[in-house]
Nucleic acid binder design. Sequence first.
DNA 1: CGGCTTTGACCAGCGC
DNA 2: GCGCTGGTCAAAGCCG
Length: 301
Amino acid sequence: MEPAACLEFSSLNLELSVGPADLTEKGLASKTPPDRQQESMFMKEKLNKIMEDNRKLNEMLSDMSMNYSSLQNKFFDFMNSSPSEKTAGMASPTRKRKSDSLESYSQENVNNGVKAHVESLPSESDSYKRLRMDSKPTVSKLCVRADPSETSLVVKDGYHWRKYGQKVTRDNPSPRAYFRCSFAPSCPVKKKVQRSVNDLSILVATYEGEHNHQAPLQSEGSGRLSHVGSSITPSPSINSSSPTIMVDLTNDKLHADSKKACGEMTSTEIQKVMIEQMAAAMAKDPTFRATLANVISGRIF
DNA sequence: CGGCTTTGACCAGCGC
DNA sequence: GCGCTGGTCAAAGCCG
């Protein structure tokens, strides 16, 4: 997808670099009045052509984005459908672990601006465990870049957490720590923290539930954030499985590879990354910058 | 002494 | 039904 987009922008550069460059190279001051009229007409035609090309390319870009979004949605729909749904075309009776992936979500930012919140649709169940899971309507993820040498699975997000368990899971050699919110005794929020399989410097915190109390003072819980002296650069996004917020605690810059390490690249996130990469690539391209400058100057002229 | 962490045991979901 | 796995409990120990 991205190479195709780059090709489109390359063609944009080529198309646009012909027009305005010609305009600047004509040297109008040395022309006689009849020649000037001809050149003026020629410039107007060129400008019209450039504007039309810009419009066409914008349409192509928007079409490409729409196609990409459509394909992305189809892809995630396919990935999120259970094997039984893929084969039999109907949902199997909901069970606790299976149904977790079928929940749908919405999102908002709270608490330091780095927490994503998602809501799940209620589903019927016949097990006590399932009912307990239904009582936790929200799930969110927070990826935190932290020092790999630090063994404690502590993600300081402004709340008070009490660790109540630790387990080594099958798919990740790093232990997973279980936390409860200890700020309010009745707060149902739980948090799981585990290092990313791909990048040990990334802590993946999974939040379940919503705090039924106000957040503690920022200074109480965000000590690590201020300790490393880095800014929080959240990148909220919606995923069909869960939203992921990436917070880099060791670098001011948001790392795309860290997101990959989280294994939670979402459709909107991918789009954002693509747009950022496209914009960055275009910004770095001297041809594009010169062309853009020429187009702008041409429009002003 | 109270709060927290550690850690082995236990329970329930799930696949075979 | 059995074994694996994830999640939780609770006793013991640590720390300020």
